[in-house]
Amino acid sequence: MDGWDASTKSTVTKIPLLTTRAGPRDGAEWTKRLKEEYQALIKYMEMNKANDNDWFRISSGPDGTKWKGKCWYVHNLLKYEFDLQFDIPVTYPATAPEIELPELDGKTAKMYRGGKICLTIHFKPLWAKNCPRFGVAHALCLGLAPWLAAEVPHLVDTGMIVHKDNVTATKADA
């Protein structure tokens, strides 16, 4: 757990760990797993709210395999918001979900084709080690949150992304 900052680490430890080893095709087991996922997510969300650190919204379909939502990052007092989606893979929980930010596809090197963020280096080994205890909440906390904190300021500085207020402003100028 070296790659993360202190606050992230402390947050992760507070997210409840999962117990059920089951993929989307495991029927009742999966439901059980899904329930645990939700509980973890609820807990994480509560923690975020309590710390005034709310940074995403997600929801899934009834089978819990497809997840969609939004995430945002505040940089220089400006909020940058991106669409967020990911599928639960068949081999879940052995395989971590691949989180996608379709808006940023092609704008940064730290991303696979199709907008999947690159979490290989730090996140994947940790996930593998903690299988099946880590769930979606952990993936968001350990994967997406650090990624955003690292990439968004960079993208903004290089001008790859522009805040929507400024977009309109530039457009108006044009």
Binding site: K35, Q39, M45, S59, S60
Partner: peptide, 8 residues
């Protein structure tokens, strides 16, 4: 599960 979904 629904309850949990709603709760979340």
């Amino acid at each position: 599960l629904l309850e949990l979904q709603r709760l979340f």
